[in-house]
Design a protein around this nucleic acid. Structure first.
Length: 343
DNA sequence: AACTCGGGGCC
DNA sequence: GGCCCAGAGTT
């Protein structure tokens, strides 16, 4: 490992992409970028990152923000507990650290939403501390170079590589080494049999390349099959306003949704449960939405009613919903179709 | 150690 | 249709 680092650092300094969060050492901005980038691609993050910082430029602003606002700023990015945890952490930071992220790995690690990867990333990038940041990119690259057949999904594997790296890291190089391995993984050592070995600076040192077994690495365990849920989704309107409901804990926690229910009962029965007895039903397009572990098959309906009283909904004008209420992507297509019909 | 938690872009 | 992504929290 150690003899590869000078090459890595040189390659990284020459080839790193110009990303918004690489133009700052502000710990808050580094932190935000790392949270947004969890399981999320760089291109998806960019516009969210800029918008979030414009709205909440400092940790104090995040700590004091309304939950509606932070969810709206995260709308469409997914894994919404990330931003709720981040706000909790911001409040911890205001109370315990005077409003500044602590320059200490264990203290970072103790903050809500900051795990081993993110603590290592912030410690090294923002504070120049000698900690490793082992993400999926790093595991893929190192498993190929060193022909390591450990399952990269296992905690033990991540721990192994974290220690391997920290044996050779100093504060001086930790940031570039961590970002360097990630950059190799993100731009050259790609998953799915499409790595660009032809331009890889580590080709001659790469065990998997030399043995022509790149496609066999990294090793990872089986994944669980996705379950299917059938839903009835209703664009419910009185002709001017639209019904919205706030979700509870679990999937898409605390976000807003169009009224919906299971497919086990009829639509008129469902409407009846909501106190809608005069619903005028027009079918809309059937839609499918795929999450990581669940698939929603949605039977969608446009329903016109006069009875908005005594319903479990918030009745809002469409413009207000668009501007203020976080509606997850699963409902976006049916929302757009319903809104079009409304006009 | 296994599950839950989003969304999109690529093949 | 399956892939995976700058993972963390809960059980």
């Amino acid at each position: 490992m150690k003899q590869l680092l000078p090459l890595l650092i040189e390659w990284y300094r020459e080839n790193k992409r110009d990303l918004p969060w690489r133009r700052t050492k502000d710990p808050y901005r580094i932190w935000l970028s790392e949270i947004m980038l969890q399981q999320t691609r760089v291109e998806a993050v960019k516009p969210y990152y800029e918008r979030f910082l414009a709205a909440l430029p400092a940790i104090k602003d995040l700590a004091e923000a309304e939950e509606e606002l932070i969810l709206k700023l995260w709308e469409g990015l997914g894994y919404y507990s990330r931003v709720r945890n981040m706000q909790t952490a911001a409040q911890q930071i205001m109370k315990e650290y005077g409003g500044a992220l602590p320059a200490d790995y264990e203290k970072l690690r103790s903050l809500k939403g900051i795990g081993t990867y993110t603590a290592g990333a912030i410690a090294s990038i923002a504070f120049g501390l000698p900690h490793a940041a082992v993400d999926g990119n790093v595991l893929r690259v190192l498993s190929r170079i060193f022909l390591d057949a450990q399952d990269i999904g296992l905690e033990a594997t991540k721990k192994y590589w974290k220690e391997e790296l920290e044996n050779v890291l100093t504060g001086e190089i930790a940031s570039d080494v961590n970002e360097g391995w990630m950059e190799v993984g993100a731009t050259i050592c790609l998953p799915n049999g499409e790595p660009k070995c032809g331009i890889c600076p580590f080709r001659e040192y790469c065990g998997a390349y030399r043995q022509s077994v790149i496609h066999l690495y990294p090793v990872k365990g089986e994944k669980k099959a996705r379950t299917v849920e059938r839903l009835q989704v209703v664009f419910l309107t009185d002709g001017k306003r639209v019904a919205l409901r706030k979700r509870g804990p679990g999937l898409l926690a605390n976000l807003w949704e169009l009224p919906n229910g299971g497919a086990e009962i009829s639509l008129p029965s469902l409407l009846h449960l909501w106190g809608i007895l005069d619903g005028e039903i027009t079918p809309m397009r059937h839609r499918k939405h795929i999450f990581t572990h669940v698939q929603w098959d949605m039977d969608c309906y446009f329903v016109q009613t006069k009875s908005t009283e005594d319903t479990p909904f918030l009745w809002l004008e469409p413009d207000r919903i668009t501007e203020e209420y976080a509606l997850p992507s699963a409902f976006r297509a049916v929302w757009a179709e319903g809104r079009k019909k409304l006009q």
